[in-house]
């Protein structure tokens, strides 16, 4: 069982490397994170906080946008693309279960994401440490950021698989993936903020809004990372919410993991119904 999952994961990783997917994702993450590190580190000196920590705070906001996008782009083609190319017929005619297939894909795509994040953000971390701006504590924040980014990515990889199972054509799946990204990552937050601004003292602000944040993996991710940094006072904005929440920031991490679990279970159910 394990050898088949690994075979699929390795094939996916190999394709990711060959078609320059990893290179592209890594380059995007490296460029954006370096830009943030260089521009965002200017005011940190007066605050007496580790500059690496400040950078991690900015990078977690970057991850919220880029990681779901990269994850969806990696995953949207996983099932319907293989149906179109005819390779799924061939793969499923082998003695391999549908869940082994999907777990293999998820492992491979997670590795692609891990490499892109590790190298892309690692370049920034290395640059800061070399320039004497980093400490060990900052490095721990950095590793936490990468680990939770991979978890965030897994949520959206699984969502991508669900879209891929539900659509027959990869073009449709691609459109659905972009729409999902827009709704979950951009519009969801805008809607919440709008509601909050409209009535800052009402029932919504006190008892619905915090849980609405938990429901969305992108918001859970941001909440957990900023709370863990204790940097909400530095970054302000939505991060300030972390201190007034009716639950501990760890719930945000649990919620993130649960979302990944549910989305993966959903895609496992859907792929069983696929007739390639």
């Amino acid at each position: 069982m394990l050898s088949r999952i690994l075979a699929i994961a390795m094939q996916e990783l190999r394709i990711g490397i060959r078609n320059r997917w990893i290179v592209l994702a890594t380059a995007i993450l490296a460029v954006f994170s370096l830009a943030l590190a260089l521009l965002g580190s200017a005011p940190a000196g007066t605050l007496g906080v580790d500059r690496l920590t400040i950078t991690v705070a900015s990078l977690s906001s970057l991850s919220v946008y880029l990681v779901p996008l990269i994850a969806l782009i990696l995953a949207f083609d996983a099932v319907c693309g293989e149906i179109e190319r005819g390779t799924l017929l061939m793969t499923f005619s082998c003695p391999l279960s549908r869940s082994e297939f999907l777990f293999g894909k998820a492992l491979g795509h997670s590795l692609v994401l891990l490499i892109a994040l590790g190298v892309g953000y690692g370049v920034t971390a290395g640059f800061m440490i070399l320039s004497g701006a980093g400490s060990i504590a900052g490095l721990v924040d950095f590793l936490r950021l990468i680990a939770t980014s991979v978890l965030l990515g897994q949520c959206f990889i699984a969502v991508g698989y669900m879209l891929s199972c539900l659509t027959r054509q990869s073009v449709t799946a691609a459109a659905a993936a972009i729409a999902t990204w827009l709704v979950l990552v951009v519009l969801y937050d805008l809607a919440l903020l709008g509601a909050l601004v409209a009535n800052p003292e009402g029932v919504f602000a006190s008892s619905i809004f915090p849980y609405a944040l938990l429901l969305n993996p992108a918001d859970s991710f941001r909440l957990f990372n900023l709370a863990a940094l204790g940097a909400s006072d530095l970054v302000g904005g939505m991060a300030g919410v972390a201190e007034t929440l009716p639950f501990s920031p760890t719930s945000a991490l649990v919620s993130l993991a649960m979302f990944a679990g549910f989305a993966m279970s959903g895609s496992l159910l859907l792929i069983r119904r696929i007739a390639p």
């Binding site: 094939q11 190999r14 394709i15 060959r18 078609n19 190319r85 005819g86 390779t87 017929l89 061939m90 005619s93």
Partner: peptide
């Protein structure tokens, strides 16, 4: 074993 009518293996492999 099965060989489908039209298979397009990944070009990069």
């Amino acid at each position: 074993a099965y060989l489908p009518e039209s298979v397009a293996f990944s070009n990069v492999l």
